[in-house]
Every structure is written in C-alpha cells, then in structure tokens.
Amino acid sequence: MRKLTIILLVVISCFSCGKASDNVPSVPVNFQAALGTPALSPLNVSGGAVAINGYGVAGLIIYRKVNGTYAAYDRCSSYQPEKKCAVTIDNTGFTVTDPCSGSKFSLEDGTPVKAPATKALRSYRVAVTQFEIQVTN
C-alpha cells in the first residue's frame, strides 16, 4: 500500500509540472481618466475603441460595446503571452489583431475569433461615472 501511495504521488507530481503559466500575467492595474479627454473621444460612440500604453502587461484596450457598456482588456495577446505581443485595433473597430501570430480577438467579449489563439484576452473591471472612467483588476 505504501508503494502504491508513493507511485501515485510521483504521477501526480509529474502531471502538475510543466509550463509555469500560459496565461497573461496578472499585474496591478488602476487607470482612470476623464471621459471628456480628447484621447478617449472614440469611446463616445458604440463600437469605439482606444489603446492606452503604460498599464497592464502590454497596455490596455478600452472598448464601448454595442449596448453602451464598456469593456477593458490587456493588450498582451493570450497566444504565447511570454512574448508580450501587444494587440492592435483593427480598422473595423470590432476586433483586435496580434501582429506576432495573426490571432484575432472580439472586442465584445475578448474571445479569439481567428487561430492560433484559443484563450480570451485578460479582461479588467470598468467603472464609469458621469465624467470619469476607471479600469482596475
């Protein structure tokens, strides 16, 4: 019985080892700005998106959804996040593209819409008051 327990522990250890993480790292995010800021003017309409550098792993994407609510994502692609490849907003305004792999992600929910990515972008909380937007995790 003791031998079986040792074998079981070794097997469990082997399966729990491997890549440390294939997820976008979790870093503190606390961005806030006045909604009237000219840089955020694309957020005045549904489908508008802005890229903001200096926050998260590779920057932020803030998107105003079709229903008028907001979403925020880390610009770091979920495909091979160790490369810290920053997604860029497409001309359509509804998707972003990872220039390193060609993966595309929906801005409505962050999910991949074109391979090779299989995981959604890291999302953040968005709080909006009458005059200000805040993105946190």
Rank of each mutant, 00 (worst) to 15 (best):
G102L: 03
T88C: 08
P42G: 05
S106H: 08
R64Q: 05
G110T: 02
K119W: 14
A71T: 01
D109F: 04
Q134I: 11
Q130L: 15
G93R: 05
V45R: 12
Q32W: 05
V96M: 03
L60F: 04
I52F: 06
I12R: 05
V57Q: 09
A51E: 06
A71G: 07
Q32F: 11
D22K: 15
D109Q: 03
G68A: 09
G102C: 01
A49M: 10
S46Q: 11
V57P: 08
P99Q: 02
S78T: 07
P99N: 08
K84L: 04
G68S: 09
L107Q: 00
P81W: 02
R64L: 05
I62C: 07
K84N: 02
S103E: 09
S46M: 06
I6T: 06
G48A: 06
Y79A: 05
G68M: 06
S21Y: 11
N91Q: 15
I52C: 08
G102M: 04
N53H: 10
C14T: 15
Y70S: 09
I62T: 03
K83G: 09
N30C: 14
I62W: 02
N137S: 05
A51Q: 12
P99A: 01
C100K: 05
N44A: 13
G18I: 06
V96N: 00
V45A: 10
D98F: 00
S16I: 14
G47W: 06
L43E: 02
R122H: 12
A49W: 00
C100F: 01
Y79H: 06
V45Y: 14
P116W: 05
I89W: 05
M1P: 03
C85Y: 03
T129Y: 08
Y124D: 10
K104N: 15
G93D: 14
N30T: 14
F94Q: 14
A20L: 10
E82G: 12
K104E: 15
D98Q: 02
V128T: 10
C85K: 07
T37D: 15
D90T: 04
V113D: 01
F105A: 04
Q130E: 13
Q134R: 11
K119V: 14
V135F: 11
Y55P: 13
Y79T: 01
Q80C: 07
P81Q: 04
K119F: 15
T5A: 10
L35C: 03
L8K: 03
P42Y: 02
P112H: 07
A117C: 10
P38V: 14
V113I: 07
P81D: 04
D109L: 01
I133L: 13
V128W: 11
Y70P: 03
S106W: 10
P38H: 03
